Simulated assay, not measured.
Amino acid sequence: MTHHRTTARLVLADGKVFTGTSFGATGTTLGEAVFTTAMTGYQETMTDPSYHRQIVVATAPQIGNTGWNDEDDESRGSRIWVAGLVIRDLSAQVSSWRATRSLEDEMIAQNIIGIAGVDTRTIVRHLRNFGSISAGIFSGEAADQPVEKLIETVRSQPAMAGLDLAEQVSTTEPYIVEPIGEHKFTVIAYDMGIKTNTPRNFAHRGIRTIIVPANTPYADIAAYNPDGVFVSNGPGDPATADTMVGIVRDILAAKIPFFGICFGNQILGRALGLNTYKMKFGHRGINVPVLNHLTGTIDITSQNHGFALEGTAGTTFTTPYGDAQVTHTCLNDGTVEGVALTSGLAYSVQYHPESAAGPHDANPLFDQFVTLMANHKTH
């Protein structure tokens, strides 16, 4: 299909403007400009609810070469969650046998605005040096406005810090993903922006997953008599998640096995008394090295987060639920990547063991949850 191209502009709140050509839908989109270093997996990235309200800059020089398929979406309903996409070069043809349409066709169908033909190296250096920042993509008639007007529009949007976004992406009603084969455990999964590959990993391990909306009261989930509770990844500032922090404290007090990833890691950390902060430009990619201080092993991980927990590698601290410790840190910059109760009853990591897309190094974390639930059940 031939698509009409117009001038497009990526405008940052600090006044930087990058001019390229439109692709996907045409118009205006606003969000926080962030970059991902992943060389593959743009479909999984774009459908990850954690990218809600973010304009993603791809460091890979060519995007779109594997097209779009009906199998790799990470959101329920196959929704694209990114606010916009910034790339250097749009592939002229689709080369994957799994593709059913092109990336651009899907972006048009879902009204997602993109800009191509810009120097993404320069944009990424700028974000790396000065931090993630409010931004907008303007194409078609919207790009013809005076630059001062475009900058004013970008600056008028709320900053990512302080935004409570999880409820915007969460399911509104509980639903169940049944186990494959024998039913061994029942897990409550809080949908803060859950990726579809997470309950799929549970299902392969004999777990019935009951996915519930963000902020579902503890009394409601206790009625299911779960073997464990999981809190997923998701968008927004964890400092706003006071309700979920209170719920997790109830779960810890009830001594129910707990596992969290990404946003769930920040929630557990806050429940244990740690603070969070907004990172300069965050971690977004599929090759981030993480050191496990308990085992000394290093995993190459998939990550997508702009906030993190405060803490120091290997430190142990006292909580109302027993001693806890910082279990993992990033080898690139020392960021906290995992916390746990020393009893082993609750643990979480900042990265994505469901690896969609990404390496499988961290996948055994799901097996650790199964072992934890099994041991807890027999005691």
Rank of each mutant, 00 (worst) to 15 (best):
K255Y: 05
V169W: 08
D227I: 01
L30I: 14
R270F: 02
I108K: 12
G273V: 06
A219Q: 15
G338F: 01
E141M: 08
G193M: 11
M244G: 10
A166G: 13
H328C: 00
S50V: 14
G117T: 09
V288H: 13
F263L: 12
K278D: 08
Q266L: 04
S75M: 08
L85S: 12
E178S: 14
I261D: 04
G140V: 00
P320H: 00
D105F: 09
I267D: 07
G31K: 01
L252M: 04
Y42R: 01
G273N: 01
V124I: 15
D367S: 07
V187D: 07
F258T: 01
T301F: 01
H293G: 00
T171K: 03
D14W: 06
V154S: 06
Q266H: 00
A109W: 10
H204A: 15
L291N: 12
N233E: 09
L127W: 08
M39E: 12
H3E: 13
D119N: 15
L331G: 01
G314D: 03
E167M: 09
F307N: 04
A219W: 03
G260E: 02
N69K: 07
G162V: 11
R205V: 10
T2P: 10
R79Q: 10
I80K: 10
A33Q: 12
Q54F: 03
D72W: 09
I194C: 11
I300C: 01
G296I: 01
G314A: 02
S355P: 04
F230I: 03
G181H: 07
Y51M: 11
V290N: 00
A166D: 05
L345T: 02
G117R: 08
H52P: 00
P364I: 06
N363D: 13
G67M: 09
R53I: 01
I261A: 03
E104S: 07
Q303E: 15
T59A: 13
E178P: 07
A239V: 06
A219D: 14
T319M: 03
D164I: 00
V245Q: 03
